[in-house]
Design a protein around this nucleic acid. Structure first.
Lengths: 215, 215
DNA sequence: ACCTGAACACCGTTCAAGT
DNA sequence: ACCTGAACACCGTTCAAGT
């Protein structure tokens, strides 16, 4: 079981979601395709369990984090750690927290984030929404980040900067009268750092939360 | 071409992403499978174009919106309208803004959102990040909302409330000492409204943005 | 308890051929 | 310019059968 998940994650990491087929996985495990069905009932369950497997590592990172006096500072540190852990695994976004019956680590991680909101002056509903919002920013940013490369970048035929630059170029050719905003931000877009984009979105959410909690 | 996209969207709306196959689409169009390849080069391009097709309708909704004096109020109204438009189309989240060469409507929508940030006292980078964050909240929430039902709900065998309630029940059985946060929010989770969750995440982001802009 | 080969019912995509 | 049937190389899943 353990090795099924380990190899599944390895396959996902090496070549992306579409590379994880039962046939490829069986070959790596040195067995037949049907064997995998003894461990999981479907591909969906395999992905759910693979997700929880890597979330387990992220949870360990989270538990190694030093405590902060300010709960919002601690939420930030946790969100950044979580983002780092799943950054290179965009496939994870679609499965994280989808089935907490199978994803015990995801549930524990959710709990750990949520405990910080218990230290803030909020209603239960506000706490629920706050944690959902933070998880949303982390997962959403990681998914965005991972879906960007449209094949040629994955092949290594075109670098990420060149890819962004090509887009930026077509944007620059748009009529500035019709697209003033696109022209305003095209230089920011060109060669932009996804991590900064995530940090910025997180900061907006945390600032809103701090305001809400009156902290 | 127009009818290819219309039927593709109809198929997606009726039965979800997995129901859109070239064979099913060809049958609806009363032709052969290979015909579709005269209009699009691949299934990916079909999804890109189908996405832009429905974003066109959302864009029209946006343009019908009354102007607000406050740019942040206008951003809120736009985000809510966009959310409503894509709420029932979670498949869209994975494709929105993925290829603006093909998605002219998505680009125009991005521009329209961005123009509101031009009215705020921000740097170009802050504007770029702000629009990314807002789009992220909208798309992320819509995707979450759509991925939830795990088959039995889609089949109509189990209602959404019952599905949530079942989860809530397993959460209630967790040890309160280990899961204080889960216990704190389980009643909020049970029967919760996804739209409220989205509105709440949006409000946190907009509050942060207002603070940043000093408005 | 754990694994297997072979089959089943699908996919997206291609291609030579038609009008 | 537009469409087609038939094939190709895959999929996830099932099942009777093995140890």
């Amino acid at each position: 079981m353990e090795s099924v998940l380990t190899e599944a994650v390895a396959l996902l990491d090496e070549a992306g979601e579409q590379a994880l087929t039962f046939r490829a996985l069986a070959q790596r495990l040195g067995g037949g395709v049907a064997s995998i069905y003894w461990y999981v009932a479907s591909k969906d369950e395999l992905l759910d369990r693979a997700t929880d497997h890597v979330i387990g590592a992220a949870l360990a990172d989270l538990e190694a984090l030093p405590a902060h006096e300010d709960p919002i500072d601690e939420l930030r540190a946790m969100a950044v750690t979580l983002f780092d852990a799943i950054m290179e695994r965009p496939w994870l976004g679609a499965y994280f927290m989808r089935n907490t019956d199978v994803q015990g680590n995801a549930l524990r991680l959710y709990e750990k984030l949520g405990q910080q909101t218990l230290r803030l002056d909020l209603t239960a509903r506000q706490r629920f929404h706050a944690v959902s919002a933070i998880v949303g920013v982390v997962v959403g940013s990681a998914v965005d980040l991972g879906q960007e490369p449209p094949q040629e970048v994955l092949d290594g035929a075109v670098g990420r900067d060149e890819f962004l630059g090509r887009y930026a170029q077509t944007w620059r050719e748009l009529d500035p009268a019709d697209f003033p905003f696109v022209h305003e931000i095209v230089d920011e877009f060109d060669g932009h750092d996804d991590i900064e984009q995530f940090r910025s979105a997180l900061e907006l959410t945390l600032a809103g939360l701090r305001l809400q909690a009156g902290a």
